[in-house]
Design a binder for these strands. Structure first.
Lengths: 121, 121
DNA sequence: AAATTAAACAGTAATAGTTCCTATTATTGG
DNA sequence: CCAATAATAGGAACTATTACTGTTTAATTT
């Protein structure tokens, strides 16, 4: 992957926040240093950074968000304000621990384990 | 909610499969009995069925899928074939149990707890 | 059983997020 | 410093979903 100024800035923006930004938000940020950057460039570079393991893509409903934190961690999603909050926990009683540690009321739990099923051994 | 033939068929299609179908797949199925049903009707009714608690909407990456199973349960997503497999587990060591019970190799775990954060007490 | 009312409809246009295309520009290895 | 080619800007295209509009249909009232 050849160096690119735009990609470097995009990476810095993702690494600068814990808010799991969208492509559009990142685009707006980078525009302040490179006013005529195109949204396609942002998407292309986010995909590359994802593929190279610099960032990860998470889906918040139907829209993509980007996260610099590559450690295995989970998210608390508030369906009133939409915030996505990082957390890391042992595998015990999630709901109670989350209520205690984050004062976050769990209404629904969605767990997706991504991997490979037994048809591809 | 007034009775509608189309909605009844849409509900039946969702209840007929464990494959977590997309709106488009449901549309194709229902078309065999109502050839000129419109895709908008499918989406509108899926949303209504969701709001009335007959089905739930799950997001698979950026696309919506529909599930008749309203119990709290999780999904194994295979990133080779895209299958989404239901499972239900106690909160112990997920990865090992999943490997043993489903012969499914977990590469990444995404957990989203949906609820309300402490700004809205 | 007709008339009335409003929900649901088909068809289609519009939107949002994302990807693709093309001619131009920038990085890099020789 | 030059040639090769990866990356770019700008905009068109695409996909999933929602919104709009005039018509049909189910439920309710006469």
């Amino acid at each position: 992957m050849r160096y690119s100024h735009q990609r470097e800035l995009i990476k810095q923006v993702v690494y600068s926040t814990n808010s799991h930004p969208t492509a559009d938000w990142i685009y707006d940020q980078v525009k302040s240093s490179v006013p005529n950057i195109s949204l396609g460039t942002v998407y292309r570079n986010l995909k590359q950074l994802n593929n190279e393991g610099y960032i990860r893509t998470i889906y918040d409903g139907s829209i993509a968000r980007y996260d610099w934190n590559m450690d295995s961690h989970y998210h608390l999603k508030c369906n009133t304000c939409g915030d996505l909050i990082d957390f890391q926990l042992p595998n015990d009683d999630l709901k109670k621990t989350v209520k205690r540690k984050f004062d976050f009321k769990v209404l629904d739990v969605e767990i997706t384990l991504i991997g490979k099923c037994n048809k591809h051994n």
